[in-house]
């Protein structure tokens, strides 16, 4: 990252914190309405040091990683099938769109009922929320492969596997990785929703506890900050993988 970019990012962060602080000062908000950034920062540090945050963050991270792996894997297969078969697309597309249009928030309690309030239901929710963007990105990416290249490869009697591995996947990878970027941040949202619907541990559970039982609003904000950082870090990891595979964007 260039010095200029680092400066921009730092300036944006500083501006955000100043903006936040200014609202608190000008509005004269008490801690239970909007805690000041330094109060949240203090609670963030204390929650990590006293062991409040770590096990919950680890649980959410586990759910996100497993759910993303499951959802993205299934979406890659489904995206390939959708790209290759008009019949499959015609048959499955309405269900995929309908599933995407159904709020996961409404489905989460049902999934908790069917799969229990343990790890499995959270993984399923994450997988469901990840599936659609990755599947669509895969389908679109594969369909946009240059037909002339495909015809040329076929003229050299490339097998379907060779076509996929040496031509289609590399060509579709920028699109697929774009879907992965969206998917991994949605997976964090899915894990939190799953934990809201029931669970013993996780950042979503901690949000509920901080808000509903403890009335510890700085802890609520500190947990939200952790969730946001988790999303950003995962996004950057996917972006890094993308850069290694595809090269820099733009």
């Amino acid at each position: 990252m260039s010095v200029r970019r680092a400066l921009d990012v730092t300036a944006a962060a500083v501006a955000f914190v100043l903006f936040w602080k200014l609202i608190v000062v000008v509005g004269n908000y008490p801690v239970f309405i909007l805690p000041a950034p330094e109060v949240v920062a203090e609670r963030f540090v204390s929650a990590w040091l006293d062991g409040t945050m770590e096990p919950n963050a680890a649980q959410t991270l586990l759910e996100v990683v497993l759910g993303f792996a499951l959802g993205a894997s299934a979406a890659l297969v489904a995206g390939y099938a959708l790209a290759r078969s008009r019949l499959i697309e015609r048959v499955l597309s309405p269900y995929l769109v309908a599933a995407q249009a159904t709020p996961i928030l409404a489905l989460a309690p049902l999934l908790a009922l069917w799969f229990g309030s343990g790890l499995l239901s959270k993984v399923v929710i994450c997988a469901l929320i990840v599936f659609f963007p990755v599947a669509v990105a895969t389908m679109v990416g594969l369909r946009n492969v240059d037909r002339r290249l495909l015809e040329m490869a076929r003229s050299f009697r490339a097998t379907p596997w060779q076509l996929l591995w040496t031509l289609e996947l590399p060509a579709a990878m920028p699109g697929i990785m774009g879907g992965m970027r969206v998917g991994v941040t949605l997976a964090v949202v899915g894990a939190i929703i799953g934990e809201w619907a029931g669970g013993e541990q996780g950042l979503g559970v901690l949000i509920n506890l901080a808000r509903g039982s403890l009335f510890d609003i700085p802890l609520l904000f500190a947990t939200l900050l952790t969730v946001a950082l988790l999303g950003v870090v995962l996004y950057l990891i996917v972006a890094l993988v993308e850069r290694r595979i595809v090269g820099p964007r733009g």
Binding site: A12, V14, A15, L18, F19, W20, I23, V26
Partner: peptide, 16 residues
Amino acid sequence: WFVLPAVIALLAAACA
């Protein structure tokens, strides 16, 4: 980066 948030914050606090 610094001026715009300040203006928005003042407006937000005034409206809240």
